[in-house]
Structures are given as structure tokens and as C-alpha cells.
Design a protein around this nucleic acid. Structure first.
Lengths: 118, 118
DNA sequence: ACGTCATCTGAGCAGATGTACAGGCATCAG
DNA sequence: CTGATGCCTGTACATCTGCTCAGATGACGT
């Protein structure tokens, strides 16, 4: 099997078998990018803290998140916007309060795991 | 229970109960930082690709990694240095070839999961 | 309507990040 | 030894990030 794309065919290789195996186990580029984006979203301490708070207290308000995470409102708001555009969280309006919660089910296990390292 | 640290006691809060619950479920700062660092390391598409390659082909060489991930040697080398200093991978010298593999067992499940989204 | 409150937005900036390029070091074959 | 090969490092640069600050928006109570 020659899984090496034509544009890299000229490149020197030490173990062609290894390269083909690696390529065979690789998802397509778009999938990799999507997954990486999820990890990147969790890769910031402040955002991870926010996610953990939303995980333990679903439908928590922005103000309370800001106090719990020790960040100021504006910073929280921007972090939440990023997480929301990544599809990880969802919001719900409740009067003039907006409540956030984790909606991506893939995060549940990960966040539980992080909390376990307490 | 008043889990809110004294330096934030003056801040306005909507639901003190929620804030305390969120704080109670939070690991200490250092733990959060460590976990975030792991996610951040996986948060770059190139690095995630490299990790996936090392996951499916343990002890793969730098040259082969570069071809499989379609990056040039130097970029791969720097990415590997970052991953190594994060403690996620380990290296083994074999003549003039250096072989890398994933050593952090926590990544196994995560990488398998990413591969599944193929 | 008015003031207050919860949240969002935009601008600006310091610092971090990722990549390419050039060159260096170490190892192997002849 | 000499040249080729595999890998690493330093530098430079453009880009991205995350934060703060100031101000805007929208909803509530009176």
C-alpha cells in the first residue's frame, strides 16, 4: 500500500512501512483540526476553570462564574464567547441573568477526570 | 460554608450557594494548570497529528514523523521538544536515529478516541 | 422614566506561539 | 578522513492570545 501522497513521494523515509501505518491511523485533516480545537479550548487554565465550574454547577450565571474563577466579568464573557463558538457550552437567558452550562457530552468524562485530580 | 476567599468577599454574587459549590468542586490551582498544559499540548493540529502518529506507530523516527505529518524536520523537532518537556512523550536513541513514543498513559484513551472519529 | 444591575463589545497592548531558515553536531558508510 | 544523513538549535518574524479598560446594551424594580 502506498499511502504517501504524491507531493511527498520524493521525501526521504527511514521506514516506509511505519509511515504508511501512521498515515493509515490518521483521521482526515478536518477531524484533527476539530479535535485539536476542543483541546485548545480546554488548554487555558482560566477556561478550564470555567468549564469545571459549569460542570459542577450547571446553569451558573456569568457573575458567579467570575467570582468562582476569580476573573473579571469582561474576561469571563470573552472566554465564554470562545467556548460557545467552539460548541462546548450553551446559554439560557433568565431575566437579565444568562446561565451557562456544558453541552458537549464529550467533555463530561474529561472534566470529571480533571476534578478527580483534586 | 463560606468557601469564598477573603479577597473576593466584597464582590457581588447572585447565588452564593452556586459559587461555593463551584469552588468546592475545583481542584487546586496547580492541578488545573497542569491539566490545562496537557490539553494545550494537544491543542495544536500539528502536535496532535504527531501524537496520533506516535500512538499508532510507537518508536517512530523523526524523519518518518515529518513525512507522515507533512511537516519539515525542524518544525517536528521543535514540536517534539515541547511535547517532551511536557512529559507526554519519551525518546530512545537508535544509532543516529531517535525514536519517539507516547509515554503519558492518560493520553492513550484520548488519542484512541480521536482516531475513532475517522 | 430613571437608576441599577448583568452582560456584552471593541480597542489597544504586552506577551506567547508556531514556523521557516540557516547552520551546527553527531553518527554512519566507504 | 570525507561526505552524507538524521536530528537539533538559534534567530527572526508574523501571527495569535488573553487581558484590561472604557463604554454600550438590555432588563429589572420602583
Amino acid at each position: 500500500m502506498h499511502l504517501i501522497p504524491t507531493d511527498r513521494r520524493h521525501r526521504r523515509v527511514l521506514d516506509e512501512h511505519a509511515v504508511c501505518d501512521a498515515l493509515a491511523g490518521l483521521p482526515d485533516d478536518q477531524t484533527v483540526r476539530e479535535r485539536a480545537a476542543v483541546f485548545a479550548a480546554m488548554g487555558d487554565p482560566n477556561r478550564l476553570t470555567l468549564l469545571l465550574c459549569m460542570h459542577t454547577v450547571p446553569d451558573i450565571s456569568v457573575t458567579d462564574l467570575a467570582v468562582a474563577a476569580n476573573m473579571n466579568d469582561s474576561t469571563v464573557s470573552q472566554a465564554l464567547r470562545l467556548l460557545r463558538s467552539a460548541g462546548l457550552i450553551g446559554d439560557r437567558r433568565d431575566g437579565r441573568v444568562i446561565r451557562y452550562r456544558v453541552t458537549d457530552t464529550r467533555l463530561d468524562a474529561l472534566l470529571r477526570n480533571v476534578s478527580a485530580g483534586r
